[in-house]
């Protein structure tokens, strides 16, 4: 449970429901520990609805248990008829009407476009995300599996997919939207807290659907600007002999056919851009850390880590070569 939900302004029943779940609501991917305007509105809607749901459940089941196991004798059939009329016909439309009005009143703000804010394009591909930021200079910078956002700003997302249907979802910040081939869908989010969160794919997209996650870093606006500027710059040259050999091996073995490293001759577009891969919080769509050892594992046997992945295994390369490539890539901060 997030602390704000135990503050005095929270409702008593809310704490009551939450009590058995203390600690069960938190996590980097939790919808109940909101860190964005949209997620907060939806979480509030959820708590209200669950409160009412439990109340209604209690009344209906209490009534059923009463007439069956507590007082199974015959009751007045006129009362029974009133029960149908009241419980079945009159009350539900009222309750549902209020709920509908409350729930739908959130729609305009949830789907509010981020008119003049930052616009990020995200493409869901099997099984990673291509993320494109516009740079202040008017260009674009491409990265993968990591979304960084300035806190307190409404950010728009343009969502596409070149292959199958995926979805884009950052539970801590707000709801999800599908990424559909042939269409561009939109989403806007407004983070309210600085921190690292997790995003996931919710639409089944094939073998490694489970392994298509990403990190979301919400930063102070200044830090964000610095970061974006740094991402827009070309890759730093290799540091040290091993990394230098790693860069050579990377280019010699054709890695550049699929991957781009700005500042080198590698300019492939099929796979993730690796210009600053070492600065990312995860490798292979949220499955591995970005240390040299993980790069080695990934390059040698990507299919073991992510079944069905498009990248071929490079375990035919000599181990020292893999090691040097891994060292080089992990340095690309």
């Amino acid at each position: 449970m997030d602390a704000t939900y135990l503050s005095p302004r929270s409702w008593g029943w809310r704490a009551l429901i939450a009590l058995p779940l203390l600690g069960g609501c938190s996590g980097p991917q939790s919808t109940l520990q909101p860190a964005g305007v949209d997620a907060e509105q939806i979480a509030r809607l959820f708590w209200w609805m669950s409160g009412f749901a439990i109340l209604i459940w209690g009344v209906v089941i209490g009534c059923a248990v009463f007439v069956t196991y507590i007082k199974p004798r015959s009751h007045d059939s006129r009362v029974a008829r009133w029960l149908i009329l009241g419980g079945g016909v009159v009350v539900p439309p009222l309750v549902l009407g209020v709920l509908l009005a409350f729930g739908l009143s959130l729609l305009p703000s949830l789907s509010a476009p981020a008119e003049d804010g930052l616009q990020i394009s995200v493409s869901g591909e099997r099984w990673w995300r291509r993320v494109r930021y516009p740079t202040p200079s008017g260009g674009t910078v491409e990265l993968a599996n990591e979304v960084r956002l300035p806190v307190g700003e409404r950010v728009g997302f343009r969502l596409t997919s070149p292959d199958v249907i995926h979805s884009f979802w950052i539970p801590s910040l707000g709801g999800k939207v599908d990424m559909i081939p042939g269409r561009t869908t939109r989403l806007s989010l407004e983070p309210t807290e600085v921190g690292v969160f997790r995003g996931a794919c919710a639409e089944f997209c094939g073998t490694s659907h489970a392994l298509m996650n990403f990190r979301v870093v919400v930063m102070e606006p200044d830090a964000f600007d610095t970061w974006l500027e740094q991402q827009a710059s070309p890759a730093r040259p290799p540091q040290g002999e091993v990394a230098r050999r790693g860069q050579e091996a990377f280019l010699a073995n054709g890695c550049g056919a699929c991957h781009a490293i700005r500042g080198t001759s590698a300019d492939g577009v099929l796979g993730p851009d690796l210009t600053h891969v070492g600065s990312r919080l995860s490798l292979a769509a949220g499955t591995l850390p970005t240390d040299a050892e993980s790069f080695e594992r990934w390059i040698s046997h990507p299919d073991d880590i992510k079944p069905g992945v498009n990248m071929p295994a490079f375990d035919m390369l000599p181990a020292p070569q893999i090691h040097s490539i891994a060292t080089y890539l992990s340095q690309l901060e």
Partner: peptide
Amino acid sequence: GLTGVMVAIAPFDFQAHDT
């Protein structure tokens, strides 16, 4: 049925859908 009413409200479904 009651959780059904909850997910039928589009805004909540944006979070709950496919979970």
